[in-house]
Amino acid sequence: MARFVQIIEFQTARIEEIEALGRPSRTEGSTAPTFRRILATADRDRPGTYLTIVEFDSYDSAMENSNRPETSDFAARFAALCDGPPVFRNLDVMWEDTGDSTINP
């Protein structure tokens, strides 16, 4: 199965609260999250705009993570801290270049 990436773009004036909200969600709950890694970024050209990049082993793994009660709770609290609705991009990884001359399909 191809790896899967979800990008969440959002605007907020409450980024510190969102950062604090995200930290415990990785370790709490009855099942372990299925993501491979999370990268939180701030848009230099648009202050108050942020993108979170979440990498999963597969689309199925992402859906398993989405179905966790902890994820649903986090999503509701996260949305309440945003200045508008977040935008979700769901991406299948076609290939990657890790910089070590290896290209992974």
Rank of each mutant, 00 (worst) to 15 (best):
2 A>R: 12
3 R>V: 03
6 Q>F: 03
6 Q>W: 01
7 I>F: 11
8 I>D: 02
9 E>D: 02
11 Q>C: 05
11 Q>R: 15
11 Q>Y: 09
14 R>Y: 11
14 R>F: 07
15 I>T: 02
16 E>L: 01
16 E>I: 02
17 E>I: 03
17 E>N: 10
18 I>L: 11
18 I>E: 12
20 A>C: 03
21 L>R: 10
22 G>V: 01
22 G>P: 04
23 R>P: 01
24 P>K: 14
25 S>E: 11
25 S>K: 08
27 T>N: 06
28 E>I: 15
32 A>F: 05
33 P>H: 06
34 T>N: 02
35 F>I: 00
36 R>W: 02
37 R>Q: 14
37 R>A: 14
38 I>N: 08
39 L>F: 11
39 L>C: 08
42 A>E: 14
43 D>K: 08
43 D>A: 08
45 D>P: 00
45 D>F: 14
45 D>T: 15
47 P>T: 08
48 G>D: 14
51 L>G: 09
51 L>A: 13
51 L>K: 11
52 T>A: 13
54 V>R: 07
54 V>E: 06
54 V>G: 04
56 F>M: 04
56 F>I: 10
56 F>R: 00
60 D>S: 06
60 D>K: 00
61 S>R: 14
62 A>T: 00
66 S>K: 07
67 N>L: 12
67 N>K: 07
68 R>I: 10
68 R>L: 03
68 R>Y: 02
69 P>D: 10
69 P>M: 07
71 T>W: 06
74 F>K: 02
75 A>T: 07
79 A>G: 09
80 A>F: 04
81 L>A: 05
81 L>F: 02
82 C>K: 00
83 D>W: 01
83 D>Y: 08
84 G>V: 02
84 G>S: 09
85 P>Y: 06
87 V>L: 15
88 F>Q: 02
90 N>S: 02
92 D>N: 04
95 W>Q: 11
95 W>H: 12
96 E>W: 01
97 D>C: 06
97 D>M: 10
97 D>E: 10
97 D>P: 00
98 T>M: 08
99 G>P: 06
99 G>D: 09
101 S>W: 04
101 S>R: 05
103 I>T: 14
103 I>E: 01
105 P>K: 05
